[in-house]
């Protein structure tokens, strides 16, 4: 397998990774972006982005395409749908091996693996994915026109999408594990005011029933143990995200929630390795905060590379 040398390798092509690539490439540093999925990351899951400063309204996928084009216009190479088969970060020279592409080396690696939608992890959830269970209201809402459906979750996504799904469904039952919501108060108010929405709280989801298609969600009340069976043909799952940090070397320190620990300059505890975006331990996760992370990491990485060169390393 051929080996190619870069100044910096960015692992992940969401807004954090692509922003880092834009800044690095514009600083005339040889930059490679390796993305194991489609560039854009979780932005691709956002139908409409209305709060990105300077852009009146766009789609998440559209914003990702523009960011990628910007990075490439400055000279960055982007490999998407990549299969990383080897990752070595501990030495002064880092190695990233990508199936069918080659081995890539660089003194700097910026980790931007992002997050993935959290699933319930039930066997029956996988069985009914695409046959009643969905993770995207804008994609699949119209399949459930005139039907009774459930939304699982209690954050902003769950409540906003529940309201949105009432455009199609006859009724929407929100199943949530707590007796209160993590969503903003205005989102809760809007959902509570919608006559098509009802709430079943303090529930642990136990399974999904059906034959070829989903026919019911089952759950149990967390305090009383009462079993609940709700007949629905659709269930939309919005229970947050998990960081995609599995497979990172043990030298990359993670929190108990499997998020990467960095300092304010986005440095990990391994020299030359930075971490940015949703997989980094931090409070707020927005496109804007991801862009900020990517900018800071790239600016500091450029300084770090300059220092290495001055020292002749």
């Amino acid at each position: 397998m051929d080996t190619y040398a870069y100044d910096a390798i960015v692992l992940g092509g969401g807004p954090a990774g692509l922003t880092a690539a834009i800044y690095l490439a514009r600083a005339r540093l040889a930059t490679l972006v390796v993305d194991t999925g489609s560039t854009g990351g979780q932005m691709n899951l956002t139908h409409e982005v209305a709060n990105y400063p300077g852009v009146a309204a766009t789609t998440g996928a559209g914003l990702g395409q523009v960011m990628r084009a910007q990075a490439e216009s400055f000279g960055a190479r982007v490999i998407s749908q990549a299969e990383v088969t080897r990752l070595e970060l501990d030495g002064p020279e880092k190695f990233v091996e990508v199936e069918d592409e080659g081995t890539f080396t660089a003194p700097v690696v910026i980790l931007a693996p992002g997050g993935a939608p959290r699933t319930l992890g039930l066997e029956s959830e996988a069985r009914f994915k695409g046959r009643g269970i969905s993770y995207c209201a804008t994609c699949d809402g119209d399949f459930f026109t005139g039907q009774d459906i459930a939304v699982i979750g209690g954050g902003n996504s769950a409540l906003e999408e529940a309201v949105s799904l009432t455009k199609y469904a006859s009724s929407v039952t929100i199943l949530h594990e707590f007796d209160h919501f993590q969503a903003h108060p205005w989102a809760v108010r809007e959902a509570r005011a919608n006559p098509k929405i009802r709430f079943v709280l303090e529930q642990t989801i136990t399974g999904f029933e059906g034959d070829e298609r989903l026919t019911a969600v089952t759950s149990v009340h967390k305090r009383t143990g009462e079993e609940v069976r709700i007949p629905v043909t659709g269930a939309f799952v919005f229970i947050g995200y998990v960081p995609r940090t599995a497979g990172l070397p043990p030298s990359i320190r993670l929190t108990g929630r499997q998020e990467i620990v960095t300092d304010e300059l986005m440095r990990t505890e391994v020299a030359g390795v930075y971490a940015v975006g949703d997989a980094r331990a931090k409070r707020y996760r927005q496109i804007t905060t991801a862009v900020s992370d990517g900018t800071i990491a790239a600016l500091h990485a450029a300084e770090y590379l300059g220092e290495l060169r001055r020292r002749g390393e």
């Binding site: 489609s38 998407s80 749908q81």
Partner: peptide, 20 residues
């Protein structure tokens, strides 16, 4: 599919597999 969040990644996957 459509040009939606669940579809776009699958188009990309297919494109990436053409050579293989």
């Amino acid at each position: 599919g459509r040009m939606g969040p669940m579809c776009i990644p699958v188009y990309d996957v297919m494109d990436s597999l053409k050579a293989k």
